[in-house]
Simulated assay, not measured.
Amino acid sequence: PDLLNQFAQNWYIKLEGLADWHDNHNCECEFEYTDYYIGYWCFELALVANVLEIPRESLEDSVYVPVDLIR
């Protein structure tokens, strides 16, 4: 859980310049980028947590972890 939490803390920051959706929530362009902004979640973290059977309670502090997808 500690390593996953550490990864989650750096996940969004490390995607700057790599992901076209990075910072879409700050875009003031009408309908250009904001149409497909639905939030920032690292679905891979939920997958790893499920495979390794890491309890969701240990990852709930991160805003990037979709804890509802963790068993």
Rank of each mutant, 00 (worst) to 15 (best):
Y12N: 03
D68F: 13
L47D: 07
E57I: 09
F7V: 07
L47C: 08
V67F: 08
E44D: 09
N26K: 15
E57K: 10
G39E: 00
G17A: 04
A49Y: 00
F43K: 01
P55W: 13
W11H: 07
V67N: 09
N50W: 10
D35E: 14
N26C: 12
D20M: 09
W41C: 02
F7K: 06
Y37P: 00
T34V: 12
E57A: 14
L15N: 07
E28L: 11
A46Q: 00
Y40W: 10
E44R: 06
G17D: 01
C42E: 01
S62P: 03
L59N: 00
Y37K: 03
F7Y: 12
Y37L: 02
D20T: 08
D61L: 04
I54C: 05
L4T: 01
D35Y: 04
Q6M: 15
D2K: 11
S62N: 05
A49H: 01
P1W: 12
E16C: 07
A8C: 13
H22T: 02
L69W: 06
G39M: 01
N50I: 09
D68M: 07
Q6P: 03
V48T: 02
E28F: 06
D2L: 11
A8L: 12
S62R: 03
L3F: 13
N10K: 15
D2M: 08
P66T: 03
I13G: 09
N10D: 14
Y36R: 07
L45C: 10
C42D: 04
E30Q: 11
Y36V: 10
L15A: 09
E44L: 11
H25K: 06
T34Y: 05
R71Y: 09
N10M: 14
N50L: 09
R71G: 06
G39H: 00
V67G: 03
D20W: 11
E60C: 09
T34C: 12
Y64P: 01
H22A: 00
C27D: 15
L47M: 12
E60L: 03
V63P: 10
Y36W: 12
E53M: 15
N24Q: 13
L69I: 07
L47Y: 13
D35R: 05
W21I: 10
Y12A: 05
P1T: 12
Y64V: 05
D2Y: 11
H22G: 00
E53G: 14
V67R: 03
V51T: 14
H25I: 08
W11V: 02
T34F: 08
N26G: 04
E32R: 05
H25Y: 12
N50M: 09
A19T: 12
E30R: 05
R56Q: 10
Y37V: 00
L45H: 00
V48E: 00
D68T: 09
W21L: 07
L3C: 10
V48H: 01
D61M: 05
P66E: 01
E16F: 07
E44T: 08
R56L: 05
S58W: 06
E30K: 08
V51A: 15
L59M: 04
E32G: 05
W41Y: 09
F7T: 06
N50A: 05
V48M: 04
W21S: 13
D61S: 07
Y37S: 01
L52H: 14
I54K: 02
N26Y: 14
C29S: 15
V48D: 01
L4H: 00
V65H: 01
E32N: 08
E30T: 10
P55Y: 14
I13S: 15
W41M: 02
A46T: 00
L47H: 10
S58R: 06
F31I: 08
C42A: 08
N5I: 08
